[in-house]
């Protein structure tokens, strides 16, 4: 059941990251222009315009494969936290807040966007924790089995 939960969470994160990454690749010019107009990211706009969607697709790959899913869930939480910190910083310190998000997510208001990110951070951490507990249980079983004398 725990594995099923983390599978569903991973699928939701795959949907989110794959969708936004493809949006950023398809509309790369717009994405770059928006980053260029952000005071905070202007000096590194070109680097960020490629590294963000590539990182998102790398996380999708991690989430796709069960063996790498645990690290994928943790990376998802970290990336979403970085996005959320960026939004909060821009809301606090910038007069203009261009949205560098992809597709339908850009139709959310900023408060909704932060809430959306927090929900997904929570889901990713819950998924990661569930997987950690599952692997701990499996390790304990393996240790107990190995202690059984073979006759």
């Amino acid at each position: 059941m725990r594995n099923m939960k983390s599978e569903i969470i991973a699928a939701l994160l795959i949907l989110l990251f794959a969708y936004t990454a493809f949006q950023k690749f398809i509309g790369h010019g717009t994405f770059l222009n928006t980053l260029h107009n952000s005071a905070l990211l202007r000096p590194v706009a070109i680097f960020v315009s490629w590294s963000v969607p590539i990182t998102e697709l790398a996380i999708v790959c991690l989430l796709l494969f069960p063996l790498l899913r645990k690290i994928g869930l943790l990376c998802s939480a970290v990336l979403l936290t970085v996005f959320t910190i960026y939004i909060v910083c821009m809301l606090l310190f910038s007069s203009s807040l261009p949205c560098t998000c992809g597709g339908i997510i850009s139709s959310l208001s900023w408060k909704q966007h932060i809430l959306f990110n927090i929900i997904f951070i929570g889901l990713a951490l819950y998924g990661w924790y569930s997987m950690r507990e599952t692997s701990d249980t499996n390790n304990n079983i393996a240790i107990r089995r190995s202690q059984t004398p073979v006759t």
Binding site: L16, F22, I26, N33, L97, S106, S107
Partner: peptide, 19 residues
Amino acid sequence: AITLNSFTVKTSKHPTITK
């Protein structure tokens, strides 16, 4: 996700493109 990218969404409550 790939299928959803076939649809363009134009609605926006906050600025997506600045010039």
